[in-house]
């Protein structure tokens, strides 16, 4: 019983510490001088270098989703609505979630390990003693890069996922590209695209904050670096689902109205 209470207490304390860390990010996010060079470098590392992985995953998801759905859709005589269904499910949920979970693994662990290693080897202390604010240089730039790049990665995954779906439809059925994408886009409304894009910014914030928090506060030693990378992925993934749930609940109110 005591151990459960201790774990619960630790969870609350940890949540408070992550929230305080996020608060510090917001207080320094617009403070000058802004580290533009580091921000562009991080955008390249986080955005461009994750693009292939995200696109490949999105493409496979598009293929798999269509292949799995097709027999059922045929059974119900609704295979003609396949582009509509795939586009809505991909844009609203599958695309963002697959992308951010991949990114939580790749980017979250990468940031956690990099900052953790910098902490352990005293590089963060070295920055601090040279009169540079390491939080501003390392943390603010990385979180901004995550916030800015995640929506682009989600859009890329959505686009490539729809292409994967079209590939199955054109191979198994006889749908032209124009017809497929015409049906896919006509099914979408602004209420599908905007909430998905807005929540992608928040997903970026979560991945950035958690990755940076775990790395920046890493324990000493190589084990500390490993733990920082590992817990960054676990905590970010959990929080991403919570943010997604919240986003869906808010969007649901919009759909009901």
């Amino acid at each position: 019983m005591d151990s459960i209470l201790n774990r619960l207490r630790y969870s609350f304390e940890e949540t408070g510490r992550v929230a305080a860390f996020a608060g510090r990010f917001f207080s320094e996010a617009f403070r000058r001088p802004f580290e533009w060079r580091e921000l562009f470098r991080q955008c390249y590392l986080i955005g461009y270098q994750s693009l292939f992985l995200v696109a490949a995953t999105g493409f496979i998801m598009g293929l798999v989703l269509t292949l799995q759905l097709r027999p059922t859709m045929i059974e119900f005589g609704a295979v003609a609505n396949m582009p509509n269904m795939v586009s809505i499910s991909f844009i609203r949920e599958i695309g963002p979630m697959v992308t951010v979970l991949i990114c939580a693994g790749k980017i979250g662990s990468g940031i956690g390990a990099e900052l953790g290693s910098m902490r352990v080897t005293e590089q963060i202390d070295a920055m601090e003693v040279s009169g540079t604010n390491p939080f501003h240089f390392l943390v603010v730039t990385r979180i901004w890069a995550c916030i800015l790049m995640l929506p682009f990665l989600v859009i890329a995954a959505d686009t490539v996922g729809l292409m994967g779906s079209f590939l199955v439809e054109s191979t198994k059925g006889s749908v032209s590209m124009i017809l497929y994408f015409d049906k896919a886009f006509s099914a979408l409304s602004i209420g599908d695209v905007v909430p998905a894009t807005i929540k992608s910014f928040f997903f970026g914030l979560v991945i950035g904050v958690v990755g940076c928090y775990k790395g920046y506060n890493s324990e000493k030693g190589t084990a500390g670096v490993g733990k920082a990378a590992n817990t960054a992925v676990v905590l970010a993934s959990l929080l991403l689902f919570l943010v997604d749930l919240l986003a869906v609940l808010i969007a649901d109110i919009y759909y009901t109205i």
């Binding site: 910098m118 080897t121 005293e122 070295a126 920055m127 003693v129 040279s130 009169g131 540079t132």
Partner: peptide
């Protein structure tokens, strides 16, 4: 004050994503 006090760390603490020139340019 920190600008007036140099600190040589035991493990050197060079920024490992930067070249030697960039390590010196940074401060």
């Amino acid at each position: 004050i920190r600008k007036e006090v140099g600190f040589l760390f035991q493990g050197s603490a060079l920024y490992d994503s930067m070249t030697l020139r960039e390590n010196l340019q940074f401060p």
